[in-house]
Design a protein around this nucleic acid. Structure first.
Length: 437
RNA sequence: GGAGAGAUGGCCGAGUGGUCGAAGGCGCUCCCCUGCUAAGGGAGUAUAGGCUCAAAAGGCUUAUCGAGGGUUCGAAUCCCUCUCUCUCCGCCA
């Protein structure tokens, strides 16, 4: 959510910046609502003030021994009656206007940071840096994609997964399942032991309120899996552990000394992928369920851009250790997510398709989520102030597995295991077709 | 799932219809006294809005005692619904 004060004082400029994100702000409607709210609120408060005043007088008279039927008290009655009717009406209207304003505000995306390149789509994203050199395969090397590699090893099975759950699910077994687990452990260990994050085990089902806090609701409900829960309402399967991790500080005032808060969690993520029909239908790239190790930082507002660079570096570190080539992209205004003020995507090299493919997305949401969540800290002056929140994948486990399979494949169909992962694989240095262990 | 108890400010805790945004304590901040490691005295100490003010300070004002609704001139206090926490029983990884 944007600061309503900012909208009030600098509306045209805000609308202009939002338009670079392909969002049209109805400034006329906004202004009309704010003005209506202002005048109705003043009326309401004046009526309340009058009511409080009379009630206090009655209280004093009663304290002084006057009877309720006494005409000193009874004399107030006509005035009270009138006030009461007017107040009821004013409160009702105020509530309506406030709801309408709220609905308008909660679907406005975050403002892009000044450093974000302007652009309409993915094509306008800006490459920041590259790391590593894509491997050169011999001309007679038949480069396979991860689906072929996994299926030829007999360890990856989409057909059975489809029988169990339908499309966009996968089944991994044996060494491949272990490799998937190894990647997860390796990522968590790196972030906790080398980057200072606190490992956190979180709920996979969350309430609508939590999703509202991080910005997935109310606008993107169709992307989520909903789990009905009787009369209590619905649960939602988390689309990312950013949701539970960030909501930890919802409705909290954090002590200055506790900052920054750095959290990591490994969870499955669930996405309905509505609107992506026909896109990435092959393989592990786009699934309804995938594992991810997430990084979240809750920081002092003055440190959030520093933290974004740091957090992105933490995600990059994983790829460096795995020796997988990648590039870092600054997303343009038109390609950024709803809550982000600035986002870096990390794209890993996938030789089978000859492309760099998104494997991590690191965003600074500034106070956008914090305002929705009422997540604050006590600043240097002892005043509560909104925090800044950041999140990033560190990394998407399934896509990392894809990258390892494709980049480390051998001519004989086996896959070499990156050195960094070998300790997590019981010392094993290659995955070969020899059954399912 | 059944039975019961509870939810008050940073924390503890009082408050069952009226001058209560809330006693008291702890903690914290400032001042004074004293001076050697411990103590005494005083003042202050919620959040979000609105109005006023050139701005800051200040002043006025509204809301908030788990959430929402109701009764009432007036609700922390009474009624209803919900949420959460604790205890016991049942079930269960």
């Amino acid at each position: 959510m944007l600061d309503i004060q900012l909208l009030r004082t600098d509306l045209e400029n805000v609308a202009k910046r939002l338009s670079t994100r392909r969002f049209t702000l109805d400034t006329v409607r906004f202004q009309k609502l704010v003005m209506q709210r202002g005048s109705i609120r003043t009326d309401t408060q004046k009526l309340e003030e009058a009511r409080n005043h009379i009630s206090k007088l009655i209280g004093q008279l009663r304290g002084a021994g006057h009877d309720p039927d006494d005409e000193t008290i009874g004399g107030f009655f006509p005035e009270i009656q009138k006030n009461s009717d007017q107040l009821k009406e004013a409160k009702k209207r105020l509530g309506e206007i406030e709801d309408e304003l709220q609905q308008l505000l909660e679907v406005i995306p975050n403002l892009p940071h000044d450093s974000v390149p302007e652009g309409k789509s993915e094509a306008d994203n800006q490459e920041i840096r590259r790391w590593g050199t894509p491997r050169k395969f011999e001309s007679n090397f038949a480069v396979k994609d991860h689906v072929a590699i996994g299926e030829d090893l007999g360890l990856l099975d989409f057909e059975t997964a489809a029988k169990l759950s339908g499309t966009r699910f996968s089944l991994m077994q044996g060494g491949l399942a272990r490799l998937h687990r190894a990647l997860t452990q390796f990522m968590l260990d790196t972030h906790t032991q080398e980057h200072g994050y606190t490992e956190t085990c979180v709920p996979y089902l969350v309430t609508a309120e939590s999703l509202y806090g991080t910005g997935q609701l109310p606008k993107f409900e169709e992307d989520l899996f909903v789990v009905p829960h009787g009369e209590q309402g619905n649960y939602y399967l988390i689309p990312t552990s950013e949701v539970p991790l960030t909501n930890i500080v919802r409705d909290q005032i954090i002590a200055l000394e506790s900052l920054p808060i750095k959290l990591t969690a490994h969870t499955p993520c669930f996405r309905s992928e509505a609107g992506s029909y026909g896109k990435d239908t092959r393989g592990l790239i786009r699934q309804h369920q995938f594992d991810k190790v997430e990084l979240v930082q809750i920081v002092h507002p003055q440190k959030s851009y520093e933290a974004l660079e740091e957090l992105t570096g933490h995600a990059e570190k994983i790829l460096q250790k795995l020796e997988l080539p990648y590039r870092v992209m600054a997303l343009c205004t038109g390609d950024m997510g709803f809550s982000a003020a600035k986002t870096y995507d990390i794209e890993v090299w996938l030789p089978a398709q000859n492309v760099y493919r998104e494997i991590s997305s690191c965003s600074n949401c500034e106070a956008f989520q914090a305002r929705r969540m009422k997540a604050r800290f006590r600043n240097e002056k002892g005043r509560p102030e909104l925090l800044h929140t950041l999140n990033g994948s560190g990394l998407a486990v399934g896509r990392t597995l894809v990258a390892v399979l494709e980049n480390c494949q051998n001519a004989d169909g086996s896959v070499s295991i990156p050195e960094a992962l070998q300790p997590y694989m019981g010392g094993l240095d290659r995955l070969a077709a020899q059954g399912k262990e």
